[in-house]
């Protein structure tokens, strides 16, 4: 069998200090269980699990799923706060499970529940049907009859200043945390919600778009933009810095005639 000789200098002891080892500790993970096909009662199940200082809540849930209880229903995908799938209520506040480290919660008991204001499918998985349908209603695309690129036409020119007006709002990953934190969503099931309103603003302010009138008509209704009372909770929980509360107030500026 061939052997590989390690060069002498590589064998020398490294001068780079070894990374500090994290002391693993044991926490209690309380998971909300709800299966509508079995019974309509929510109960909590507790699991003692080992965690490191870098362990995320999603990793903790997956540890339970792998080793202790395979039946836990949880939705996740990218594990890097890009897909918006793993939104849930963690210790009472809506957060992304993949983006929340257990160490930052500073508690030995971590409680995970499905996001509020969304129908529960099972355990931690919620139904996004309403969020997506509201998003579609806002016409989340550029409305412009001349937008087709044909031979002899060019792309639209946008300055960095034009881009900056909507870029922040285009970072929305549709995780639903804002809708879950919103106090109006808590009581009004027909409310458009901060996610939809922020997206309406994102396209309205885009200088390539010509659908402002249509979108303002959509949000200017009894369960639309006027039901927002600027509690700021949506912006408080947004994991991507979208700031829906700002978008809503700026959009309202158009309707009140402060902006054109």
């Amino acid at each position: 069998m061939a052997t590989v000789e390690v060069p002498q200098e590589k064998k020398a002891e490294s001068t780079i200090p070894a990374p500090t080892q994290s002391t693993p500790k044991t926490i209690t993970l309380r998971i909300s269980r709800f299966n509508p096909s079995e019974n309509a009662e929510t109960k909590f199940e507790e699991f003692k699990i080992p965690v490191q200082k870098w362990t995320t809540v999603l990793e903790a849930i997956l540890y339970v799923k792998q080793n202790l209880d395979h039946s836990i229903a949880v939705r996740y995908s990218c594990r890097q706060a890009s897909c918006g799938s793993c939104g849930m209520k963690i210790n009472g506040k809506p957060r992304l499970a993949c983006y929340t480290k257990i160490s930052e919660l500073e508690s030995n008991v971590v409680t995970v529940e499905p996001m509020n204001n969304f129908p529960i499918i099972r355990d931690l998985a919620v139904d996004f049907k309403q969020l997506f349908s509201t998003h579609k209603k806002m016409k989340p695309f550029i409305v412009n009859e001349e937008s087709e690129v044909l031979p002899g036409t060019k792309e639209f020119v946008q300055t960095p200043q034009d881009l900056e007006k909507f870029l922040q709002f285009s970072y929305c990953i549709k995780c639903g945390l804002c809708n879950s934190a919103c106090p109006t969503m808590a009581t009004d099931k027909s409310f458009v919600g901060p996610q939809g309103l922020a997206q309406a603003y994102r396209y309205t302010v885009d200088n390539r778009d010509q659908g402002k009138k249509e979108r303002l008509k959509i949000v200017d209704q009894s369960h639309g933009i006027w039901r927002c009372h600027f509690a700021g909770s949506c912006s408080n929980v947004c994991p991507k810095g979208v700031d829906p509360a700002m978008a809503i107030q700026l959009l309202r500026g158009y309707l009140l005639g402060f902006r054109t």
Binding site: N116, P183, A231, G232, N236
Partner: peptide
């Protein structure tokens, strides 16, 4: 859809001034 299935927080959640910082407290006080 029953309330539990819809998982809406309701008035209890709306009037809870904790969790989301000063703006939510101001909303509650207003």
């Amino acid at each position: 859809m029953t309330e539990q299935f819809s998982n809406r927080e309701g008035i209890k959640g709306m009037i809870n001034p904790t969790r989301y910082g000063l703006h939510r407290v101001a909303y509650w006080m207003q």
